[in-house]
């Protein structure tokens, strides 16, 4: 129980630091092609234990997003998308529920559910998160093609980063 808290706080710090110190500064793109943005911090919400209370989950997501926003100088933007991710997490979990249900004490990781399951789980949520993020950033569906392009490219690269992180550190 205690180690669960410690692990999550450690992961929170690592992910936030990776995001704001490294990924924020990476700017892949040239001229008109500026579609690739990296998001690794959603992984923190993805890997929170299943038994966490949903209101608490939403508030944690909101505060995490605000923290990211502080560094990105975009109040509300990341928090909005991360709250959306946290809200959707339960429905995706239910959608991907194994035949014999979840064990109460588990965490949604590769270790517990296998690579394929995690890939689907994280892909859906990260995609939703990024799509929401760019939609809110553009704030108008007038820019729909741009939103879609940004979402797809950013999703691919972010998902690769997230999977790499999970494979390398293999959290339990």
């Amino acid at each position: 129980m205690n180690s669960l808290w410690v692990n999550n706080i450690k992961r929170f710090l690592i992910l936030i630091l990776i995001q704001i110190l490294i990924l924020k500064r990476i700017n892949i793109g040239w001229a008109d092609f500026n579609y690739i943005h990296f998001f690794i911090y959603p992984l923190f919400i993805l890997l929170l234990p299943l038994r966490i209370q949903r209101p608490f989950l939403l508030i944690v997501a909101f505060l995490t997003g605000l923290l990211i926003d502080m560094f990105y100088d975009s109040p509300g933007l990341h928090s909005s998308s991360l709250v959306f991710l946290a809200f959707m997490r339960r429905y995706i979990l239910r959608f991907l529920e194994p035949r014999d249900g979840y064990k109460i004490e588990t965490t949604p990781t590769i270790y517990n559910f296998g690579f394929n399951w995690f890939l689907i789980y994280s892909s859906i949520l990260v995609f939703l998160n990024i799509f929401w993020y760019f939609s809110v950033e553009a704030f108008s569906f007038q820019y729909f093609p741009e939103i879609i392009l940004k979402t797809i490219f950013s999703f691919i690269f972010s998902e690769i980063l997230i999977v790499l992180y999970v494979i390398i550190l293999n959290p339990k």
């Binding site: 909101f62 975009s74 509300g76 933007l77 909005s80």
Partner: peptide, 14 residues
Amino acid sequence: LFIILEIISFVLII
């Protein structure tokens, strides 16, 4: 709760 948090976010954004 979700709606409230989103509204807060949007107020911040706007």
